[in-house]
Design a protein around this nucleic acid. Structure first.
Lengths: 348, 348
DNA sequence: AGAGCTCATGACAGCGCTGTCAGAGCTCTT
DNA sequence: AAGAGCTCTGACAGCGCTGTCATGAGCTCT
């Protein structure tokens, strides 16, 4: 245990280097007007003292906190994790810290929006995969800092997401092209209202149905929490016991799709012969479950968010309401096939 | 876009409430010496102005930053994500922010240890699942803040982890009890040296072998990166082409174990009849892959870390080198069974 | 009733840094 | 050769808050 000793300050560094604190500040911030000789001495002194600039003191003066806040419903998520893995180093390169607010339940979420702890303690906010209420979104507008919405379509606000409508339409079309007429849509509900662009994906699904002159049937839309095994089994059971059960299920998340596959197999249903299952994500899981899916690239999203952040912060002329839409693509594998001949209406 | 306006400060709140800034500070920090009447006025004023305390200004005075730094190799991890999901709200309740440093590659990792950006900008550091070099650990000792090592056994330093040796021994014993004599050990390598307590788990594995008078065979220990599909397939192939192939594989991570299962099935190997596979984690994946596994509870780890943090920060008497060891348990499912009769030595 | 106390509140300095401005030393021009 | 212009460095104030200390009001107790 080292004795109780202050962190060294710029004054200490300045004394050791034989210059003024101002010069230390300039040097350490990489400003130009410093002679190479002085720069070397200061850097040497800083290294010797193991000096690190106090962000808090600096931000008190500059008004910048040097931190980017991230609001996420959970960190136990392939999507969010991958985005952040790719975003982190970009922010770090820009000298920014990453402050994370996790709201794994509704109480935490409410508390965040009530107290807005990010206010005044971050320079920008990235909001992940929430289905924000209007009230919440408005609250964030008051934040007086750039807010970027990730993986959600925030009208009139900077957003980055994949083209969910298109993705969902493509997926549904794929199933229709195979001959399916009764196609179920399985929604995943996450903690604290975490949803995967539900509205848009449902829209794409309905568009594809409409284009093929198929009626939309509410009974074919079910939902369950991702980590609720029983909920998933029940939702699948609900579909199977319909008067006219579906011949295909479109699941909005690969990891849940795999659970659906499992539930179906347990019920003695062969895939893809008796039932087609289509996922979303192209998570590793999908590859070895041999799951047909719609691929999205969270790594690309992470980088796009990083770039958008830079733009919004550095370019005052930039469009502060721009939407960056990334593409998806269908990856056919072996969980989708034409429906069985006798399937259409077993109950009738 | 609201006009360029300063954030309100305590002075603004004080004026509106008709008191001094000192009183505002006391009130907002919940100190006792404030009359209910005054407290109400101040709180009302703060709410009206949408005031939020500037952490940076406060920390300049107190010397506390109000932030806990977390060093993780990746955020795309069930384990780390779950720990943080449970830790986050605890820290939040204590008024702490969570600052995350992600080092998805060696360069980022090196940069972290070189610059130690957490220094002076956090009150404590939580280090996750790294296999730190001695040099790195020593570097962190210089940090002059409590450091908690999560999911790793840091000698002489506060740590929280599951009993890896015991877990691994139990798992290996389970396989031995089933009659296996050639048991492979599959290690997962993560980004920037991310490993799952490799040393301890290998120790437990060897202990169990020794207790059963089985020789340790280096050839039976293979490794691959978790996200490297080909690597996994190759590692499995390596095992299968040994002169004496194993009859069971112990994989140190469920998600990888599932890929191993898939590789094996692809190679026409029936599970568990021809080969047993044992996982580690009890990830959701294990449940529906019906994978026998060793369960650990990252949620418990998160809470334990939160409590340890509180203790280290609040109780100067507390043991600063304590190790908190959490239990694991074997969950038998259907990927482990006795070895095939004719298996022991096909090549001889 | 006055001394002695407690308790709520206010005044003020200063945490460590950066931005501004002034000044010293230099080069270049005419 | 002297002034103009430039580059580099230092002095100093002040960012917004908290801790310390002083003050005065209200209380108890003799």
């Amino acid at each position: 245990m080292p004795s109780v000793q202050r962190h060294p300050t710029m004054v200490d560094v300045a004394q050791l280097a034989g210059v003024s604190p101002s010069t230390v500040s300039r040097t350490l911030r990489g400003l130009t007007n410093v002679t190479p000789d002085v720069r070397a001495r200061v850097e040497q002194a800083a290294r010797e003292l193991n000096f690190a600039v106090s962000r808090q003191a600096a931000s008190l003066v500059t008004g910048k906190t040097g931190a980017v806040a991230v609001l996420v419903p959970t960190l136990n998520s392939w999507f969010i994790g991958t985005v952040l893995d790719n975003l982190g180093p970009m922010l770090r390169a820009a000298g920014m810290e990453l402050v994370v607010y996790v709201t794994p339940n509704m109480a935490e979420r409410a508390s965040f929006f009530e107290r807005l702890p990010a206010r005044r303690n971050a320079d920008a906010l990235l909001v992940f995969s929430f289905d924000l209420t209007d009230e919440e979104a408005t609250r964030l507008d008051d934040l007086e800092m750039p807010v970027i919405y990730v993986s959600q379509h925030a009208k009139g606000r900077a957003s980055v997401y994949v083209d969910d409508v298109d993705a969902s339409r493509k997926g549904t079309q794929h199933l229709i092209n195979l001959g399916h007429r009764r196609i179920a849509f399985f929604q995943t509900i996450g903690p604290s209202g975490f949803v995967f662009s539900t509205h848009e994906r449902l829209t794409g699904y309905r568009q594809a149905l409409a284009e093929a002159d198929l009626a939309f049937d509410e009974e074919l839309v079910v939902a369950s929490s991702a980590d609720d095994e029983r909920g998933i089994v029940e939702a699948v059971g609900q579909l199977l016991t319909l008067r006219e059960p579906p011949t295909a299920i479109f699941v909005d998340q690969d990891q849940v799709a795999v659970s659906v596959l499992w539930s179906l197999r347990r019920a003695g249903i062969e895939i893809p012969n008796h039932m087609s299952v289509l996922g979303f994500d192209d998570h590793e899981t999908a590859r070895w479950a041999d799951l047909t899916t719609i691929a999205q690239q969270p790594a690309d999203i992470g980088r796009a968010v990083g770039e958008l952040y830079q733009t919004l912060v550095n370019d005052p002329e930039a469009d502060r309401e721009q939407h960056i839409v990334l593409p998806t693509r269908l990856i056919p594998r072996n969980t989708t096939a034409p429906p069985p001949r006798d399937a259409p209406a077993p109950g009738v």
